[in-house]
């Protein structure tokens, strides 16, 4: 894929945000908040960073792979997958409906291109990503494995079992990212179960930590992901702490857990879309 300018990438982000909002609105269910906050990450990854092939192969040999551990961001992932050629954009309208490949949470048995393992039950994706990264090492395939997790998701014990394992086994072809939006379902993470010093925690587990402070600024996200790549291959797994705002891009949704799992009504959708230009054509 030829490199796109920052402006072009930003336009794709706006379209992704429109897609997400229209998808969850159409079925009146799903999770808009975090995908809005991760739009820059998704677009930077799929349109700039990944060496990938939309002619999907399950084993992903010879490609960079991405795993979504926080499966409730499905609307954002489906949008970026379709917009980067994995399946027809028109299929976004089947999201969460009966007989769709676009399940509420990502699933493989409907064979949606781009999905390699189901997610939705939190805390499991990092382990899977580590396994894939190790398979690549065995095969001497020098491509990278990426995985995204939520910050609330880090409260699951399995994440830390995986963290310990990855450092111990020097899985340095792995770039994990935490969507550090400070929110989860019941409220802000520091009120629900304080994550305290995440940077120190991951460092103590033996990871190289890369902070991306402006997670909703395309230039910073790309620079941050470039930095992460440069840290890979040096004996340690790499963790991006990606500072984002839940609901970013829509003034009345930003910065609150209220939109974690609530769809907008007709009026709210119209208002939100009014703030997001239709750049690539709605599905």
């Amino acid at each position: 894929m030829e490199k796109q300018s920052i402006e072009q990438l930003q336009k794709i982000c706006t379209q992704l945000r429109r897609d997400v909002l229209r998808m969850v609105h159409a079925v009146q269910s799903g999770h808009p908040g975090a995908p809005l906050g991760c739009a820059e990450f998704f677009v930077a990854l799929y349109f700039d960073q990944l060496r990938h092939n939309p002619d999907f192969k399950m084993n992903g040999k010879g490609e960079d792979l991405f795993f979504l551990s926080n499966g409730h961001l499905s609307a954002g992932w489906y949008s970026v997958l379709s917009r980067s050629g994995y399946f027809p954009v028109a299929e976004l309208k089947t999201f969460r409906k009966l007989n769709s490949r676009l399940q509420g949470h990502p699933a493989t048995h409907e064979h949606l291109p781009g999905i390699r393992v189901a997610s939705g039950s939190l805390g499991q994706g990092l382990s899977v990503a580590i396994g894939v990264a190790q398979a690549k090492k065995i095969d001497k395939d020098d491509h990278l494995v990426y995985v995204l997790m939520g910050d609330g998701e880090l409260q699951e014990g399995q994440v830390w079992e995986a963290a310990m394992y990855a450092a111990h086994h020097k899985v340095d072809n792995l770039i994990a990212t935490v969507d550090y939006n400070g929110q989860q379902i019941d409220g802000p993470t520091d009120k629900i179960m304080d994550l305290m010093n995440l940077k120190a925690k991951w460092e103590a587990f033996g990871w190289e930590v890369n902070e991306i402070k402006e997670g909703n600024d395309m230039k910073s996200v790309i620079a941050g992901l470039e930095k992460a790549k440069s840290l890979a291959g040096k004996g340690k797994p790499v963790l991006n702490l990606l500072y984002t705002e839940m609901g970013f891009g829509v003034d009345f949704m930003v910065g609150t857990h209220k939109w974690h799992g609530s769809p907008p009504n007709d009026e709210q959708l119209a208002k939100a879309l009014g703030q997001l230009e239709e750049t690539l054509g709605d599905y």
Binding site: V27, G71, G104, H105, A107, S119, G120, S121
Partner: peptide
């Protein structure tokens, strides 16, 4: 449970 799908 509905739209959340099989994972849940």
């Amino acid at each position: 449970l509905g739209e959340d799908g099989a994972t849940h």
